[in-house]
């Protein structure tokens, strides 16, 4: 027997199940549970307006938040953010934002995968989680994961209509809209941090030092 067979046989023996392959009813029980995929309990208490909850939680975890009324206003909002934080005027963004009026805002932009020294990466988000103020990003050729990882500043553009209560709602969106999980699902909750030296929280461990979320409300997009 190879290790796989040995381990599986030991599990069955110790659990008091008959030896050999799993029986029909065991497989059915597993498949049925997967089909139902029941949700567990969400945190109690008043959720209030989901956008407000998302904003409060995101800020509590060190993100900054801005709000605009339309997609066209995004470049100006980003310009204000860059100037206010004395950040370099050189952004790399996902292709879905190529058509925004970047030049009107005087922003030097590139649509390509980020490289090590690119200072600012701009992404969208598949959706967000109000419970914890978390962004949910899915990877593919047009929505690369490293854009939110390598630069010192990550700016995320989020449609407020895509704010879910908990992760459970987000999984349902994923099942309905995509059918399967992509190679990478990244939940991002604020800038990278470490507390490995004397439990002192330091922002900017290996990922971004800053996460800035720009909320675009659905009514005006």
């Amino acid at each position: 027997m190879n290790s796989r067979e040995t381990i599986l046989a030991r599990i069955r023996a110790n659990l008091g199940k008959p030896s050999g392959e799993p029986e029909e009813q065991e497989l059915i029980a597993v498949s049925e549970y997967l089909n139902v995929h029941p949700s567990g309990p969400l945190p109690e208490g008043e959720w209030g307006d989901l956008t407000e909850r998302f904003k409060a939680r995101a800020k509590a975890l060190g993100s900054t938040v801005d709000e605009v009324a339309s997609m066209a206003e995004i470049p100006d909002a980003i310009r204000r953010y860059l100037d206010a934080n004395a950040l370099p005027n050189a952004v790399v963004c996902w292709p879905e934002f190529e058509m925004l009026p970047w030049r009107n805002a005087g922003i030097a932009f590139n649509v390509r995968p980020v490289e090590d020294k690119d200072p600012i990466g701009i992404t969208g988000a598949f959706c967000a989680i109000a419970e914890t103020g978390t962004l949910m990003l899915l990877s593919n050729a047009a929505t690369r994961a490293i854009t939110s990882l390598l630069p010192e500043t990550h700016i995320a553009i989020l449609n407020t209509a895509r704010i879910c209560k908990g992760m459970e709602e987000a999984w349902n969106l994923l099942r309905v809209e995509r059918g399967k999980v992509p190679r990478a699902v990244n939940f991002i909750s604020g800038p990278s941090r470490t507390a490995d030296i004397e439990q002192t929280i330091v922002i900017g461990a290996h990922g971004p030092f800053r996460v800035h979320v720009i909320l675009v409300s659905l009514a005006s997009t």
């Binding site: 975890l61 914890t132 978390t134 190679r183 990478a184 699902v185 990244n186 939940f187």
Partner: peptide
């Protein structure tokens, strides 16, 4: 923490 900064699911390889 209500959640860690990064929670990452990886499934399969590049394509």
């Amino acid at each position: 923490q209500p959640i860690s900064n990064y929670v990452s699911l990886t499934t399969g390889t590049r394509s």
